[in-house]
Amino acid sequence: MIRKTRPGSFPITDPAVIAAGGLDVQLVLERERGSSVEGAVLHLTDRDLAAADAYEDDDRARRRVVLASGESAWAYLDADPLRSAQRIVVVGDSIAYGRCDPRGGWTSRLAAAHITRNEAAHRVFNLAVPGSFLSDVSEQTPALLAARLPDTLVVAAGVNDCAIPLASADAPYDVPAHIAEHLGSLAATALNHHARLVVVGPAWIDEARTGDYGGLRFTEARVRALRASVRAWCDGHHVDFLDLWEPLRGKPELLLDGIHPTAEGHEALYRHLGAPGC
């Protein structure tokens, strides 16, 4: 039995799958607090899992879920984690917080659209803190979730981790290992709260304008490396990765100081996340 899910229908868009099965909809698990779905747990080999992944089309993704027994298992869910979410908690740094935007950034726009879809059931809690490193987010998040009953945990942090501290510019660059450690901890936290982990990648920066930012220097090369590390970790652990690089790339006018998006920049990030489906 899978806890906190309910069966729903999902449109199939792959013509080959429709032709093979004769249906254009498929049942899919949707999260709903207090609900459960009866079923069986299959013990598969890596080869079996690979075959199942190949069979499923791009509209579904294999993700970890918690069973009523407390054990975890793989299940195929809606590949769009925000479309299927109800209660979303966002943790991260100043960009997720919405600094430099009177409207509260892309997170505030997401919240408005998400809650409008279902005012009774949908919630978005923006708990991002400017200046946060991924280690801060990993340490502080467990205590924040229980009262908010999330089904989706969105992590938008890491840019501060890849900055060069001017006081020790020759320090070793170990962000990939650092990222793996703290994202792994956040994945465990999300699973403990029956929530789906969603990791937001960094946005493009205008290196020519970042300069000395509070004793830190940001470079495009390091932010690119961070983006690659986060994506690789998410791919390797079957965790949702939302890439925010392209909406701002090569558009310095959408950045106030080379790092923080303007209001128009945040609007571009929000639209890139798929505003009509949020």
Score class of each variant (00 low, 15 high):
A121P: 00
L134F: 00
A40T: 13
A228D: 15
L255M: 04
P7K: 05
N160K: 07
G274F: 03
E181G: 00
H237F: 01
D48Q: 12
A16C: 04
E181V: 12
W245Q: 09
R196Q: 13
D151S: 08
R87E: 07
I95D: 00
V223M: 07
I259G: 01
L153D: 11
R209Q: 12
E220N: 07
D235N: 14
C100Q: 15
V175W: 10
A147T: 15
Q26R: 14
D78H: 07
L248E: 03
L269K: 04
R31I: 00
A96N: 04
A75R: 02
V154I: 13
V41S: 03
R87F: 02
R6Y: 06
G39N: 05
A85W: 03
D161F: 08
Y213L: 12
V66L: 01
S9E: 11
A147N: 12
T107P: 11
G258R: 05
L149V: 12
D48G: 14
G265F: 02
G265Q: 01
G214C: 06
I115F: 03
D257P: 03
P252R: 02
S94H: 10
I205T: 09
Q86W: 07
G104A: 10
S108H: 13
C278P: 00
E220S: 14
A275Q: 09
R60D: 01
R63D: 02
V129Q: 10
N192W: 05
P130N: 08
G70C: 05
E246A: 15
L255T: 06
L197I: 10
S132D: 15
C234K: 02
P102T: 08
D161N: 14
